Simulated assay, not measured.
Amino acid sequence: MVSLVGVTPRCALHPEVEAGGTCQRCGGFVCEECSTWVMGVLYCAACSLRPEVNYLETFRLKLWGRRDTNAWLVGVGTLGVLAGVLTALLQGAWPMALVLLGAAVVGGAFYLGQSWARTALVFTPVVAGVAGAAMFGPALLVGGFLLFVTALQIFLDTRNRLFFRVDVSEKELRRLWDLRVNNPMARHALSLGFTTFIFPVLGPVAVVFGLIALRKVDSRARPPIGKGWQAVAGILLGVGGTVLWLLLFGPLVKGFLERLPA
């Protein structure tokens, strides 16, 4: 847009105020009051609310308060713990029944999204492991430690934190978005490319997936579509794995066919 000489650009919404910049999406002039920065890019107020512009916020709201895989696994595990409580009661092992009941309460609260249960889940394996070791021997400490490590990983998981409505940084949110949303076809192509070295029939599939993913790559789109290197790697691995199998087994197949009676 070319402005007339001597004419100062004015804000589209506030004509009496000089513009301090232009929206990177629609090109409209904006003043300081109307300027909205989204991930380091200047937009007007209307464009900043569009889901393709503020795609990380749209992604966050989509997952906010929704159960993730870990919540469902804890919920299923809680049912198993409740079965253990019933077994312990039938056998008259009241101390163990109380320990398992406490673990079941924490697991149920975790599944329901109670904030206190997120921290309690980390310490529950420690308490259960120490109590189990006191009653049945130190071997249960190993199981308690392994469950503690698993619970700690769940506690730190970005997706699970969104389920509990815990704020996460833009960097963590971008990493999760990149893993789940950003050109998943490229990731599938890479996985299939590696699998080709075990199952060569998947080689052509890896190549097709990689070509489709590569065509989608557009770093200037909103949201940006990347992972071109994964698409290329999937193609190369798919071709390489197929060629390797042909070189290894091609002569064997040829010799077998030559020995067949005419």
Rank of each mutant, 00 (worst) to 15 (best):
L236T: 14
G77N: 08
Y111S: 12
E52I: 00
I212T: 03
V168K: 07
E16W: 03
C23T: 07
F123M: 11
T87F: 11
L190Y: 10
A233V: 11
L13T: 15
P51A: 01
L260N: 06
A120N: 10
T242D: 01
V17H: 14
V2R: 14
Y43G: 00
L192I: 06
L63Y: 13
P200K: 07
V7K: 12
I225G: 00
G193P: 07
H188A: 15
V149I: 10
A134S: 11
E172L: 02
K171D: 14
V205K: 02
K216R: 15
F110W: 13
G6C: 05
R67K: 15
F145M: 09
A231N: 04
G203H: 07
F199R: 12
G92R: 07
D68G: 15
S191N: 06
T196Q: 08
L13S: 14
L73C: 12
G250C: 04
A213G: 02
Q24F: 04
R165D: 04
L152I: 01
W37L: 05
V149E: 09
F209G: 01
L156C: 10
W64V: 05
L247M: 08
A46T: 14
F194W: 15
T22K: 12
S219E: 13
V105E: 00
L63Q: 10
C26K: 04
I225R: 15
A133T: 07
V81G: 00
T150L: 11
I212W: 13
P184D: 04
W229Q: 14
L86T: 09
S219T: 14
Q153H: 13
L73T: 11
V81D: 00
C11V: 08
F194S: 07
Q24K: 13
V205N: 01
W64C: 02
L257E: 09
A133Y: 07
D218H: 02
R50I: 00
F110Y: 15
G80R: 09
T196L: 03
T36M: 05
L190R: 08
L176R: 03
G27M: 02
S3N: 13
G137H: 13
G84Y: 04
G210F: 10
L4Y: 13
T78N: 09
A186N: 09
V105Q: 02
R175C: 08
A133P: 05
P51N: 06
R161N: 15
A262L: 11
L248S: 06
V253K: 03
W245C: 00
V207G: 06
P138C: 08
H188P: 00
L152C: 03
V53G: 00
T58G: 11
L244I: 07
E172D: 15
G113C: 01
G27N: 07
R10I: 08
V232Y: 10
L4N: 12
R161Y: 10
F163L: 03
E18Y: 10
R159Y: 03
M39C: 07
F59M: 02
T8V: 15
P251V: 01
L56K: 00
G21Q: 02
